[in-house]
Computed example of a mutant assay.
Amino acid sequence: MTSEITLFVNPTAGRGRGAHAAQPAAAALRAAGFSVRTLVGNGPEDALRRAREAVDAGTGALIAVGGDGMAGLALQAVAETRTPLGVIAVGTGNDFARALGLPIRDPAAAGRLAAEALKSARIRDVDLGRVDGGRGGGRWFGTVLASGFDSRVNDRGNRMRWPAGRFKYDLAMVAELAAFRPVPYRIRLDDGPVLKVDATLVAVGNGSSYGGGMRICAGAVLDDGLFDVTVVGDCSRTTLLRVFPRVYRGTHLDHPKVTVHRAAKISVEAPDVSGYADGEPLGPLPLTARCVPGAVRVLAP
């Protein structure tokens, strides 16, 4: 393995934490004897192009510095290659790093862990989801593909210019609650029959959480070759308000309106609903996703 490591940096992650986090992470890697190259793109497309060039050139590892969006962008460059991925998690959500058991908002510790993992070849193969169909076709994801109430909150929050940070999405959730109604879904698990269900949301989990620790697919693990699919049924607004806070503990899965399925492939269709994966928009349903076992090598704790 080459001693040159690429830091893939989102300078705006976590309200500017990304730019500051690169320095202690790089220092920890250099102290361990690695040569560090920092890569910052002019927008997502340029950043991904540069990351792929680094992977093609044989970088020893691609280490994403930022939040889930940056980790998700890095996945597009390293999936199904031999290049390991490291994560310096300093964003708002950090759910992929959380699923991997990596340090959160401690770039020096995360940098030291990455260096130790590289020196001892402590590398773990984990699954990824891959999306087919829609504008998101061909996209890899590490955590959760969301659709329904949660994706509508994302849609609204992304359109809001004020306030900043997570509070914006709290306000978006309140606004969506006032107007939301369950929608008719058509779901096919693997090659089984089509399930028709009125649902509040359908979440497809490669990892267990999204939104900064909301354990929507609490039983999902990263290396079992299967998605956990959480379907929240036709809840009233009152029921949703009562159940939704339980998602942080994962105890919502016990509610009678919630069902969980496990599948290696899923197709989801619903009118006027968008999909999001790793917090990034995929476009409108229908979408199909499949779990690809061992699709990425990650630097493990």
Rank of each mutant, 00 (worst) to 15 (best):
G129S: 06
S274A: 14
D272T: 15
T238I: 11
I187F: 03
V243S: 09
S35V: 08
H20T: 09
A99V: 06
T251Q: 15
G138A: 04
R122H: 06
T81V: 13
T59L: 04
V247C: 11
S208W: 12
R297H: 15
M1D: 09
R246E: 15
P286V: 03
R290T: 15
L75W: 05
S151R: 04
G16I: 03
P245C: 08
G58M: 11
A13L: 05
D198S: 14
G41C: 09
V221N: 13
T92P: 07
D56W: 09
G14C: 03
A61E: 03
P286C: 06
A277F: 07
L113P: 05
G165Q: 09
D95N: 08
G101N: 01
G86Y: 00
P245D: 12
A179G: 15
T230C: 07
G219A: 13
T230W: 05
S236Y: 14
V78W: 07
N10T: 02
L226M: 12
P286L: 01
V197F: 09
R181E: 15
H255D: 12
R37I: 06
D132F: 06
A97N: 01
R161Q: 13
G14D: 12
G279K: 02
V144H: 00
V36K: 04
V197A: 13
G165L: 13
R112W: 01
L240V: 06
A32K: 08
C235M: 14
A203C: 15
D223Y: 04
M160Y: 12
G207T: 02
I216Q: 02
S208C: 12
D224I: 07
G233N: 02
P44F: 02
L113S: 14
F34W: 03
D234N: 11
V87A: 08
H20L: 15
T83N: 01
L282D: 00
D254A: 10
R105Y: 14
R181T: 07
V153Q: 03
V174D: 14
F167Q: 13
R124W: 09
R37L: 14
E53S: 09
H252W: 13
V194D: 11
A79I: 03
A109Q: 07
G18T: 02
G133I: 00
L201R: 01
A97V: 12
A117L: 00
T259H: 10
R122C: 02
H255Q: 10
F227L: 07
V40M: 11
E116F: 12
G211M: 05
R215M: 12
F180Q: 13
D56Q: 08
R215T: 01
R242P: 15
A117D: 04
I266R: 00
G58Y: 12
